[in-house]
């Protein structure tokens, strides 16, 4: 028996490659979904797809999730539409242009705001609601890039690393209310976000990562690397002393 039943779920960033596949899995089981995304045409296309695939109900809200205040609008709407959600999946984010972020303060700010500040902000009211309900699951898509800063993408890495610390604290707080906080750390996933990268054997399909996310949410796991192999890759990467690591071309 899964610890959490995922019958009513809110998905922020619902048009992202991974979230779409999570939505499909939940829809095929007849879940009720509340989807939040920025582009109305893409949001409608995803909602129609999930309805046809068997979702019992699909509600949508158009919102710019890069903003730190959009949840003031859509979170009450989600509660009104679903009644009592069983869980929330936060899936929005941008990879950004690492090269540009090195020099361009506004791009650095944009990456940190979208990937970290907006999530921390929306989780203030969301975590409080779940704390009072005293059950449920909050899952957030982080990244293996947040485990160690590397010259090739440290701004993105910092946004996901900050999220990692934030979620640790949140997990500690909500544990006492019976609410689980799941940090998802995917490696390379074959989605539009990575369309420009050459595909190595380390790339996982969005479908397999989505099925890992649903399993982790049901079980109320803490930190999940997807696929599993990344746990060991990062373990090794984290053990390298900083004095050595800083000399590496990573």
């Amino acid at each position: 028996m899964p610890k959490h039943k995922l019958e009513r779920i809110v998905i922020a960033g619902a048009t992202s490659g991974i979230a779409r596949e999570v939505g499909r899995l939940l829809a095929s089981r007849g879940a009720r979904l509340f989807l939040v995304a920025r582009d109305p045409a893409k949001l409608d296309a995803v909602a129609a797809d999930l309805r046809a695939r068997g979702a019992e109900g699909v509600h949508t809200a158009v919102a710019d999730l890069a903003s730190t205040t959009s949840h003031e609008q859509w979170w009450p709407e989600a509660l009104a539409a679903l009644g009592e959600p069983d869980g929330v999946l936060v899936a929005h984010g941008i990879l950004g242009d690492a090269e540009r972020a090195r020099r361009d303060a506004s791009h650095t700010t944009e990456i940190l705001t979208t990937n970290f500040l907006s999530v921390a902000a929306m989780l203030a009211p969301i975590s409080t609601w779940f704390e009072q309900r005293r059950s449920g699951v909050i899952a957030v898509i982080g990244s293996v890039a947040g485990d160690r800063g590397r010259q090739s993408n440290y701004v993105y890495g910092a946004s996901k690393g900050g999220l990692d610390i934030f979620l640790q604290g949140l997990r500690n707080r909500l544990f006492h209310a019976g609410v689980d906080v799941v940090t998802i750390k995917p490696g390379f996933v074959d989605t539009p976000m990575t369309a420009h990268l050459p595909k190595t054997p380390l790339f996982a399909s969005a479908e397999s990562v989505a099925s890992g996310i649903v399993g982790a949410m049901e079980a109320g796991r803490d930190v999940v690397y997807l696929p599993f192999i990344w746990r060991w890759i990062l373990l090794v990467l984290k053990m390298i002393p900083e004095a050595v690591f800083k000399r590496l071309k990573t």
């Binding site: 296309a45 995803v46 129609a48 046809a52 539009p192």
Partner: peptide, 8 residues
């Protein structure tokens, strides 16, 4: 990836 249902 153009693999969404529109209406059934």
């Amino acid at each position: 990836r153009l693999n969404r249902f529109i209406e059934f």
